[in-house]
Amino acid sequence: MMLEIKDISKSFGGIKALRNVSFSLRKSEIHALIGPNGAGKTTLMNIISGIEKMDKGDIVFNGISIKDFSAYRRAQMGLARTFQNIELFGNLTVLENILIGMYMKSHKGFILSGLNFRGVDEKTKSRGGSLLEYVNLSHRKGEIAKNLPVGEQRLLEIGRALATDPQLLLLDEPAAGLNTRETKNLSELIQKIRNERGVTILIVEHDMELVMGISDMITVLNFGEVIAEDKPLAIQKNPHVISAYLGED
């Protein structure tokens, strides 16, 4: 197993955001996490990436419990993510955003950096350039990131996450704010990342067409609890899921 979510609970004040959530991701699968608004999806993403602490439970990544590791340690182990509310480095260029993603594998240390006149070396820059090509952003290379349209900002976040060379990629609503054509390109990109790089993907998404089209497995969360876990076709027919979405009893 690539990732095992074990019995995670989390409350904010009196509200239980997550209740005994458990599920697992196999290596190189695309696993979707869906559910109505407020189901706890983003909270779970934050807990997995180490931005929020959980009250109870465990996270096992490649056989190692990472629940006590800080966010940057988890990233160093191969866990990358994007954000629902885009968290780009807005004042940096598109290429620089990618370069920051490559920081942990290519920075030279404090004193050496001060003695090096050439700044970021060409090899790192060209690797960054080819990553931009991979996410179809080569034409934006030198632009300031905050000036990009939302669709391209989401692609840049994915590119930046890939720059860390992850084994597991968490995508938090990557299609939010995208038009039909952009969503189609996104779905191709996600599949390409899995097929060519073997990256395991956990995606939170509201666009059901996208989710049903690319997922190997779907976990449904409602009011902080897992109510179903199955393949896309079976999920669509699951009565619990239908009632959760339509609000029936």
Binding site: Y72, N91, M102, K108, G114, V120, T124, A161
Partner: peptide
């Protein structure tokens, strides 16, 4: 020394922290 440092990967990472501390952390920094 300082200008080299700020122009290096380290300097870019320091500027990145200003824009988003959370994103910087999730990139392993």
């Amino acid at each position: 020394f300082s200008l080299n440092l700020l122009n290096s990967m380290t300097g870019k990472a320091l500027r990145a922290i200003h824009d988003s501390e959370i994103a910087t952390l999730t990139l392993g920094i």
